[in-house]
Amino acid sequence: MNTLIFRSVAPFLTALMIMFSIFVLLRGHNEPGGGFIGGLIAASAFAIYGIAYGVAAVRRALWFHPMSIAGSGLLLAALSGFVSILAGVPFMTGIWIYPRLFGVEIPLATVMSFDIGVYLVVVGAITSIALALEEKERD
């Protein structure tokens, strides 16, 4: 898959897909979308980059090890469940805050941080599988 066309398009495609994955993630609160499907889109973006430029390039670009990303997502999701202990309501109850940024009210919830956790778990786990398969193919 080392054609010139693919190699020139891959970085743009990857960037676009990652942006789209974040859009899908945030959209998922009220409409179809969410952390899982967003994570899959982001993981396929990294897979495309890996096919074009090799696994080492993806690992460099990610900076963190994919499994560490998955671990941090799991931690974020678990901690989101614990936030409700402060409000005196059961585990995993959605807690909302409404900070005002530049005059715009932004609703933030533990539901969202949980979903971001799911996103990171899926990105980390699927990317690490994809990279491992890619590496095996080369040697």
Binding site: M67, A70, G71, S72, G81, G88, F91
Partner: peptide, 26 residues
């Protein structure tokens, strides 16, 4: 929920949290 009620969920939640931390420092 009382503090005692939280005991019901804490065992699996604790294990998941620690598991996540260990994955991060793998």
């Amino acid at each position: 929920p009382t503090a005692g009620d939280w005991l019901v969920i804490l065992p699996p939640a604790l294990m998941i949290t620690v598991g996540a931390v260990l994955v991060m420092v793998r």
